[in-house]
């Protein structure tokens, strides 16, 4: 779907965020970009989204064209909802910006809210929702355009443990239902091991890809208690420590 070829990015401040990063992202992949703060994970995500441009290398999409608005869904660390708009209006926003009339979008918007477990909260404003529910609205908003690729930048980092676990499980269910590609940035080894099919380890400044680990897990309700999950966490931890020592 997308080939990232020897991409580099240096900011005006002189900080080199990424150097020589290459990665193939296939259709239907669930990739976790894992690494410590400041290793360029979010920068890479912004490059994929087209919100920033690389100084070196290139991004090649399989059809040769840059994705159209709506082909990419983006979930930020904060829910970043419009505080004056209802859950429904927030989810409608991407379609509204594409010029879709409400009458044509309503069913899709409600289905997206239903998919993330928020049926019945269509008229609630962000201030009336919990942190976890706001994040669900944000995920519904990212999914409403049926994106080819969903980019998620540490979306559950600010949530409590219980909410995080539930949202991770729900995200997995949604991914299986929708079948889009997900690139998920995290600095949590447990989160990466639980969620991703491919765990891409990044080393810090300048950010480089240190190693990739393919998950052998079949994700389900019991995954966290599975010895294979604990073994994967151990493998990833050892690999990440090795990458940090080498950096």
């Amino acid at each position: 779907m997308l080939r990232i070829e020897a991409v580099g990015r240096r900011f005006a401040s002189g900080v080199e965020a990424l150097r020589d990063v290459s990665l193939d992202i296939g259709a239907g992949d669930f990739i976790a970009l894992l690494g410590p703060s400041g290793c360029g994970k979010s920068t890479l995500l912004r490059l994929i989204a087209g919100l920033d441009a690389p100084d070196a290398g290139r991004l090649v999409w399989d059809d040769g064209k840059r994705p159209a608005p709506g082909d990419i869904g983006y979930v930020f660390q904060d829910a970043t909802l419009l505080p004056w708009a209802t859950a429904e209006e927030n989810v409608y926003l991407p379609l509204r910006l594409k010029g879709t009339a409400w009458s044509d979008a309503a069913a899709e918007v409600r289905a997206a809210l239903h998919r993330v477990g928020l049926a019945g909260f269509e008229s609630a404003r962000p201030g009336q929702l919990s942190g976890g529910m706001r994040m669900r609205v944000s995920i519904a908003r990212a999914l409403v355009t049926r994106p080819r690729i969903l980019l998620m930048d540490e979306p559950f980092a600010a949530l409590d443990e219980f909410t995080r676990h539930r949202l991770q499980a729900d995200l997995h269910t949604v991914w299986e239902q929708v079948g889009c590609t997900v690139v998920f940035v995290t600095h949590s080894i447990y989160e990466a091991a639980y969620l991703a099919r491919r765990i891409v380890l990044m080393s810090p400044r300048p950010g480089r890809i240190a190693r990739e680990i393919v998950s052998p897990l079949a994700v389900g309700p019991e995954t966290r208690l599975d010895p294979a999950y604990a073994a994967l966490v151990r493998t990833v931890t050892t690999a990440l420590e090795g990458a940090l020592e080498a950096a």
Binding site: A49, G50, L51, P69, D78, L97
Partner: peptide, 14 residues
């Protein structure tokens, strides 16, 4: 306006 919201509008071609 938070920069993330401005980014979101850019992402959707507003």
């Amino acid at each position: 306006v938070p920069p993330e919201l401005a980014d979101l509008f850019r992402l959707y071609g507003a």
